[in-house]
Design a protein around this nucleic acid. Structure first.
Length: 437
RNA sequence: GCGGUCAUAGCUCAGUUGGUUAGAGCACAAGAUUGUGAAUCUUGGGGUCGCGGGUUCGAGUCCCGUUGGCCGCCCCA
């Protein structure tokens, strides 16, 4: 038993675990690349103030924060958004538009562990800056969907709930509510799924008893599941803001439909995402069975870059967490058993034969083939057993007989066939085998 | 921060009303086996029974505390 334990909520990645994580990161990165997003990274440690400025002083309780030796108040990053806002804000005038960035990074939050949540986790983050219209949402929501589909997940496995804080505000404004009351209503909507009627308690405490007519109108909006129903419910109100906003909705959903992504997207105004900084469309991805916490979440935050000291710059972004996502892949049997099989395993007679083998081993490796061999002398029978266990496609046999004849025996471990080739042609023969020649 | 539950080998788990030196399977390693495949057999390494205290002639077992895991609440950027 080790004397030292891993800190609570932290994870270790033994090679097998690392291979699984790599698989996830590789497909995320590949997907972001084909969507034309550029990868970036930034410090793990940031000024504590950066997070307080974005989320308020209370956030410190959820952070790994401390004072460094220079007396600076710092925190391990709990999310990427403030950081990326600072990066983009600092060079906003010099960056080529559109600004489409992504990152895959590790984050830290001082929280109690739960299924799908730890104190350290990785996130895929993607953001678009400088694009005020729904064109940015089109790119990001389609990227989000493809980031999950790349693993073999389908619309049977997950879906994206799409909502809009602007629509709520315009609607409540049309009903005669001021902004404070509207925010109160949104807070209640956020809690409605969990708390039921109790969700309105805070609102009633601040603004008095809930008007039953208003409540009915709010609940009616939550029932809407399609664009058509949305247009029917809101189009007739006669609000210019609502009418203009519905045009954005048509653009967004029309584009996603043209991509064939409609089966993944559901209109659901119950999603408001508590965060005060979201300013428009918001969306969250969930597993269809509803067994796991959110797979991904995001939305528009047009004011945040400026709030953090940059120029006024509209922005949309989302993040996918790795923990819940890995759980979903495992549930659906989509986490591949990753075997890091060598291309070639060398079977070696004795010390003399070993020297002969080294020439080919190094030449093959330099040519890009993955080659392995026993580090110590091993009985032939054992070596073939090991060769088979590693999953190698070919065995190259360097025995006393072969060396004497000036050949190498190449065994196809799958077909169980063997051929002899002259030494010096070993690399070429292996290359032919793997290129199908 | 709160509640429930659990903790024996790398993994999955046995371990009698408290009783000798704590076991099995898998995994790992060596050999049978110095020229051909995941088999079989033999052998081996690996444990402060999470940690600390208490009760007892005697504690893996009972009691208290503590640390950690899992599940849930709060929160969830």
């Amino acid at each position: 038993m080790a004397t030292f334990q891993t800190l609570p909520g932290f994870r270790e990645f033994y090679p097998e675990d690392f291979a699984r994580r790599n698989h996830i990161f590789r497909l995320w990165r590949q997907t972001a690349n084909v969507f034309g997003f550029a990868e970036y990274d930034a410090p793990v440690l940031e000024p504590l103030e950066l997070y307080k400025a974005k989320s308020g002083d209370e956030i410190e309780a959820q952070l790994f924060s401390f004072t460094d030796k220079g007396g600076r108040e710092v925190a391990l990053r709990p999310e990427m958004t403030p950081t990326v806002c600072r990066l983009v804000g600092a060079r906003a005038n010099a960056l080529k538009r559109p600004i489409k960035w992504f990152s895959i990074a590790e984050f830290f939050r001082y929280e109690r562990m739960q299924k799908g949540r730890g104190r350290c986790f990785s996130q895929f983050n993607a953001d678009i800056f400088g694009e005020p219209g729904p064109e940015a949402e089109i790119e990001l929501i389609s990227l989000l969907i493809q980031c999950l589909c790349a693993f073999g997940l389908t619309d049977q496995d997950f879906y994206v709930r799409l909502s809009d804080r602007n629509l709520w505000f315009y609607y409540l404004e049309a009903l005669g509510l001021d902004e404070a009351r509207s925010r109160g209503i949104l807070g209640a909507v956020d809690k409605l799924e969990k708390l039921g009627d109790d969700a309105f308690k805070d609102y009633e405490a601040a603004f008095g008893p809930m008007d039953p007519v208003l409540k009915a109108k709010v609940l009616a909006l939550l029932e809407i599941k399609s664009l058509a129903a949305l247009e029917q419910a809101l189009g007739s109100i006669g609000s210019d803001k609502l009418t203009a906003r519905l045009t954005d909705w048509r653009k967004l959903l029309g584009a996603l439909d043209a991509m064939g992504l409609s089966p993944f997207v559901s209109v659901d105004l119950g999603v408001v995402r508590g965060l005060a900084y979201y300013t428009g469309f918001v969306f969250e991805a969930f597993d269809r069975k509803g067994e796991l916490r959110a797979l991904a979440g995001g939305g528009r935050y047009d004011d945040l870059v400026q709030k953090l000291g940059g120029p006024a710059l509209p922005a949309v972004g989302f993040a996918i967490g790795d923990m819940t996502f890995a759980l979903l892949l495992e549930q659906r049997g989509l986490m591949p058993a990753i075997v890091q099989a060598p291309d070639v395993y060398c079977v070696i007679g004795g010390e003399k034969e070993r020297l002969a083998a080294f020439a080919d081993i190094h030449a093959l490796r330099a040519a890009g083939f993955r080659v392995d061999y026993p580090l110590r002398e091993l009985a032939f029978g054992k070596q073939f057993k090991v060769a088979a266990e590693t999953g190698a496609k070919l065995a190259l046999i360097y025995g006393a007989d072969e060396i004497a004849k000036g050949v190498v025996k190449i065994r196809d471990l799958t077909q169980r066939t063997e051929v002899e080739v002259p030494r010096g042609q070993a690399v070429a023969s292996v290359r032919d085998f793997f290129t199908g020649a």
